[in-house]
């Protein structure tokens, strides 16, 4: 079986599992909304200030939500000891990891699909004319978040206090991604919307570096 086919099967299993209950998605969206609302209480931004701080807030909300949402990705397998069954299947370990990364990418993107319009309404930001460029930034940023997050979810699954450990491992690592994503989103929300190619290339570079590292290290990551 090719890696792509195996990854697609793992992806299908992850999606089926999630859409039976949709609990992870609901919790993620609500959590990110709570962060967005709390921010408006803490800083009470004017229209000009929301334009300035909005992109940062949006990405902070995504990163916090992601660091919580990605935790069950492997912890769930650990609880039911189903990871052993997955490993016994005649597929490469990268296929398992890739399937999970893609599933988490879809979950995060769905959450963002709900959150971004709500955010735009709450902070009076216009999405008209920048939708496609914003989607490009969101996809590149979210891919970086889910690749590293899924790998670290497999790491923290073996530890005590894993819910607390995952953000501790993940958030410092994501600072370059945060800077690049915020800067490129801020460019889009500015008076004259413009997409900064340097930051976009940086985001793509981040994704490539960590996707390659995950591919090289996945055998060690999932071994028993």
């Amino acid at each position: 079986m090719t890696t792509a086919r195996a990854a697609a099967i793992v992806l299908g299993k992850e999606l089926r599992l999630e859409f039976r209950t949709r609990e992870l998605l609901t919790a993620t969206v609500i959590f990110a909304l709570v962060v967005v609302v709390l921010f408006s209480f803490a800083f009470d931004p004017t229209a000009a200030e929301s334009r300035r701080y909005g992109p940062g807030l949006l990405w902070i909300a995504f990163l916090f939500a992601g660091s919580l949402m990605l935790n069950p990705s492997f912890a769930r397998e650990q609880n039911n000891e189903t990871l052993d069954a997955l490993r016994m299947a005649p597929i490469s370990s990268f296929a398992i990891l890739l399937g999970k990364i893609l599933a988490n990418l879809i979950f995060m993107s769905l959450a963002e699909l709900v959150l971004v319009p709500v955010f735009a309404v709450l902070y009076n930001l216009s999405l008209a004319g920048i939708v496609w460029r914003l989607i490009l930034v969101l996809v590149l940023g979210t891919l970086g978040l889910t690749v590293t997050g899924t790998v670290f979810s497999a790491v923290s699954a073996h530890a005590r206090m894993r819910e607390l450990l995952l953000p501790l491992l993940l958030l410092p690592l994501l600072t370059p991604l945060l800077i690049a994503a915020v800067e490129s989103t801020a460019g889009l929300f500015a008076e004259q919307p413009a997409l900064d190619r340097t930051w976009l290339a940086f985001l793509a570079g981040f994704d490539i570096v960590f996707l390659t590292a995950s591919w090289l290290l996945c055998d060690h990551l999932l071994e028993e």
Binding site: V151, H158, L169, L173, F202, F206, A213, E223
Partner: peptide, 21 residues
């Protein structure tokens, strides 16, 4: 093995952190 994986990820991140800043 897990801490070795984390150390490698962290080391890869350092040039990126520096470049971004």
């Amino acid at each position: 093995s897990l801490s070795a994986i984390f150390a490698i990820f962290a080391s890869l991140d350092i040039p990126l952190v520096y470049l971004a800043n």
